[in-house]
Design a protein around this nucleic acid. Structure first.
Length: 276
DNA sequence: AAAAGCCCCTGGATGC
DNA sequence: TGCATCCAGGGGCTTT
């Protein structure tokens, strides 16, 4: 479920409230995608500092006696969501991680368990962790430059939709927003990335930023059950131009939207507005 | 080296 | 009502 906007909206909904909290206990449910990477007891006594985001990962800075104490890396997978509150009911069948702190409990709810919580420490305070190295540039950051983006696409022969999803060039763009950004840019998802001209790459660069920023401002997309750490749902799905609209008229030209499958994921596009 | 396939897991919607 | 099938916001690992 969660792409960059949903993760960012989640971050914004609890970062300020958890800052300075002291970890009292960690409760684990069923196994997630990866093991925590440390004894849960080890985290007790740490303090939570800033909550940051890298791509679709949430990063909780940990401190111990005012010294850096590594990172707690959280990923929401396909069906994950987080809640943070002073009082929560006992964990349910899909609640697999509780960080009980002096200011409330941070809980990961994840029915499919593709998500994870991993403790990363050591070199570079955990930022050198395998999961975080090798990630592309942040699309909403200053490092996302149209010219560099075009250069990066030149070396990729795969279809542009798949290159966006891979996250090696730019992070955070998932299945919904890849289709939406390509529609806004007027580019066919099947077009090989290396074939995209400089002007079209610039247009896609702008479209990615626009779509993601708009989605963040609308609280993300709630397709089935996403909500932020305050329990609030998102509304971007009501603004989607092509995602999940197969057979429905294009909102720009009325041609039926098409659905194709790329890398076993659905892609939606308008065959008229989006040129090969 | 890059691209394509294969899984991990649960639940909701649809069809017979 | 029951059961089978398909589909779903991701991404690491293995195979071509």
């Amino acid at each position: 479920m969660p792409e960059l906007p949903e993760v960012e909206v989640t971050r914004l909904s609890f970062a300020d409230r958890i800052a300075g909290a002291r970890v009292l206990e960690v409760r684990l449910g069923k196994p997630l995608r990866w093991p925590l990477g440390c004894d849960p007891e080890h985290l007790t006594g740490h303090t939570v500092g800033a909550v940051r985001r890298r791509g679709k990962y949430l990063l909780l800075d940990l401190l111990l006696d005012h010294q850096p104490g590594g990172l707690l890396v959280m990923h929401l997978g396909m069906s994950g969501s987080v809640v943070f509150d002073r009082y929560l009911p006992p964990p349910g069948r899909h609640d697999h991680f509780d960080l009980v702190t002096s200011l409330g409990t941070l809980r990961l709810h994840d029915p499919r368990r593709f998500g994870a919580v991993v403790h990363a420490a050591g070199q570079d305070q955990g930022m050198a962790h395998k999961l975080l190295s090798g990630l592309g540039v942040e699309p909403l950051g200053e490092g996302f430059d149209a010219g560099l983006f075009h250069q990066a696409l030149k070396s990729k022969k795969a279809p542009i939709k798949q290159v966006l999803l891979a996250g090696e060039v730019v992070v955070g763009v998932g299945n919904i927003y890849a289709s939406e950004a390509l529609f806004l840019a007027g580019i066919r998802p099947s077009l090989r990335a290396c074939k995209i001209s400089r002007p079209r790459a610039a247009r896609l660069h702008a479209a990615i930023r626009q779509v993601l920023a708009q989605a963040v401002s609308q609280g993300g997309s709630t397709l089935r059950d996403f909500s932020n750490a305050m329990g609030q749902t998102g509304h971007f799905q009501l603004s989607a131009q092509v995602y999940d609209r197969a057979g429905l008229p294009c909102l720009s030209c009325e041609t039926p939207i098409r659905r194709i499958v790329q890398q076993q994921r659905s892609t939606y596009f308008c065959p008229v507005c989006q040129k090969p």
